[in-house]
Amino acid sequence: MRLDSIDKNLLNVLQDELPLVSRPFEELGKGLGISEEDVISRVKRLLEEGVIRRIGPIIDIKKLGGVSTLVAMSVPSERVDETAAMINEYPEVTHNYLRSHRYNVWFTISASSKERLEEILGEIKKLGYELIDLPATKMFKIRVKFDMK
């Protein structure tokens, strides 16, 4: 897809924050020098094209008493698709990547409680593949933003 310079500016601003005001798209438009209507139609197009996944709250589950972890699993390549499909069925599994390593399936679980996390891990262990549970002990950085020039 083609992004013009206004699209790129819009994406840069929207990645940071949608203003929490009555007419947020009008507010964004003011900064970009375009109308509210233009902002909304651009956002709709970027959503349709899959550039924007959604506009909404990014929730910090830990603040709600939740827990998360990273799991590395060693799955034979011919079993990756079916295994991933089973793992991905859990809404608590937020990211899952196939990586080039002996441990090839890497996924994160964000659950509402320690008990729920253990339950999911227990079920996944039953698949019989070697896995490592890698809970974070310290967070140094989380910043998912890319400047588009």
Partner: peptide, 23 residues
């Protein structure tokens, strides 16, 4: 309410999630 949840850190950020592969 949204502002309150942001100041409490329950909402880490309110904005767009971008598909990085698409860009």
């Amino acid at each position: 309410r949204l502002k309150k949840m942001m100041s409490m850190g329950i909402i880490h950020r309110f904005g767009a999630s971008i598909a990085h592969r698409a860009i």
